[in-house]
Amino acid sequence: MTPHPTNVTGTPAEALLKVRDLRITFGNSAEVISGVDLAVTPGETLAIVGESGSGKSVTSLAVMGLLGAKGVRIEGAAEFDGQRLNLAHPDSLTGLRGDRMAMIFQEPMTSLNPAFRIGDQIAEAVRCHRDVTEAEARARALDIMRKVGISAPERRMRQYPHELSGGMRQRVMIAMALVNEPALLIADEPTTALDVTIQAQILDLISQLQRDRGMAVVFITHDLGVVAQVAHRVAVMYAGRIAETGTVEQVFNDPQHPYTIGLLGSIPSLTGPRTRLATVPGSVPSPAEMPKGCRFSTRCPFAQPKCAEQPRLRELAAGHRAACHYAPLELSFGTAA
């Protein structure tokens, strides 16, 4: 493996969560995550964006200590609020999870227990971490349900998950995650299963709650439109590595990695001329057939022999890094076309 730069993205001094050189292996396969650095500060939203198989969800599960199955090897250093996290031993994170750091998932129906009433499930999250009476726990549950915009919360508390719509269930998930006022919220594709009008409501809700509470948010999504709307900083992941990272303006207005450029070109626009979409040919290689060097090289239209060497995540502007030997591309390919 190539040596990895020791610097961390963002502003390490104030970072609430810092992850350095995260590496994850399943069984005997190649590394699924290879040297990922992340940092997020209070009040900031970091978006991790990538397609299926990019490793964005695995990364977040490892940080939450939810990747504890046999045969999974997790390496890397992590710090949360000045405290070292032992990612290799997920059990050590149990006390933090649901308390100082919380997570919401794509499919609320599979994350809620179908056999328990909504109110009981939220109150249980309180009593797991706080030494309060049942009545106090229920009062907090009611309060948070109101804050996330659940109508008639007293009635909803007595309902079961199947009685709610998808958007309402996602609000319940958010209420449950936020009831203990976490400092960090990890949201894994929280709006992907929702209709676009409901998605707009949930995105507004998450942004508003974040502003009110000064929470740090890690937002995992495949949708660049959602990223542009919610994130301050972005990490574009491809096949278990960070391809590019920077502020949302840097990455969208001055994209450097060919993968980022291809992704941006493949989104159909709502305005302007209807040109043929750019495509990223092929699909993400499986861990077994991962190319040596730059992992995007098998799909990259600019690939050169040098790409058999793993490119470093190079700084191109303050806080803007890309893992491409040839960034900015126009220097090498500008006139050739």
Binding site: N253, D254, P255, G262, L264, G272, A278, P281, P328, E330
Partner: peptide, 27 residues
């Protein structure tokens, strides 16, 4: 009010055009 146009002149648009040409050439 339709949503704002994407920037058609910035470096992003130029690189997407460069990328398109490279894909067309490769194909």
């Amino acid at each position: 009010a339709p949503p704002a146009h994407r920037d058609e002149d910035g470096p992003a648009a130029a690189r997407i055009a460069l990328y398109r040409r490279a894909v067309a050439q490769a194909e």
